[in-house]
Amino acid sequence: MTDASLNIGREDGPYEPKFGDFFALLKPRVMSLVIFTALVGMLAAPATLHWIEAFAALLFIAIGAGASGALNMWWDADIDAVMRRTAKRPIPSGRITGNEALGVGLGLSFLSVMMLWLTTNWMAAALLAFTIFFYAVVYSMWLKRSTPQNIVIGGAAGAFPPMIGWVAMTGSMSIEAVLMFALIFMWTPPHFWALALFMRSDYDDAGVPMLTVTHGRRSTRVHILVYTVLLVALAVAAAFTSMGGPFYLAVALIANAIFLRDAFRIWRRNEDDAEADDFKVEKGFFKFSLLYLFLHFGAIWVEAVLPQGAWGGW
């Protein structure tokens, strides 16, 4: 057998994909946020697992999230190629074919759901399967290209990981799991709308009906403020539930005051102001939104490990 015979199917392709190209399909940066929030969901849960089971559960939740990212890249390859932010992804840049991405996405989806079931319980596996379905089918295939509310409803997909982590530990649903879900669900719209404001023409070019495209940039600024107010109310109120406590309250008050101030600044500005300083406030709001989520989930984690009565719980 000659070496040439090993190149079946790739003779005409100038690029040989590396392992890293396939890994990039899993959206590693999104996956790191999924790992963090799922880990907090697991640590905050009033149950214990052997550390190998807990590690495996977290790994399979992360792989499931990555698989849904690969399916999203497979479906959205056409619009990813048009948008500056996504043009370098593996499929539009020609490093991976669409069929390879589909194979990776479906294979890892099946593996992660089955393994999470075997490792923990059926409810956690069912939630993971639903999350993959919701992100790949409901958000990517349906909502993203059809409604400006895409990010509002689609944001649910990113909100499931802490709930899956909680259910993986306890085997049941609870108000705390729902609150963690709600926190990410309400956080997603202002986070992405701020991105849409300073990425400007990206979504226009791709024909994605983001709020900035369908309702205008003024309306988007109003929406960011309204959703931030709702988020602030939820985030601070969560301090008085069983997953909150004095430490969480202190963190939430500071983080939400900054977030609300920046949302108010975004609302007050017009496009001329934004153009003048190259969207400084919008970019700052977007960056802080990542820290905001990290601080809240970090505080939930701290509350879970602090002894009751001191700073932990009420």
Partner: peptide, 27 residues
């Protein structure tokens, strides 16, 4: 070189999966 990197990555993932399965089975 790229093919080697891919094969090595897949091989290491499979090896890690086997170790994890062994650990999970024991638990």
């Amino acid at each position: 070189e790229k093919r080697f990197s891919r094969n090595m990555g897949v091989g290491l993932c499979l090896a890690a999966f086997i170790v994890l399965m062994f650990g999970l089975s024991a638990v």
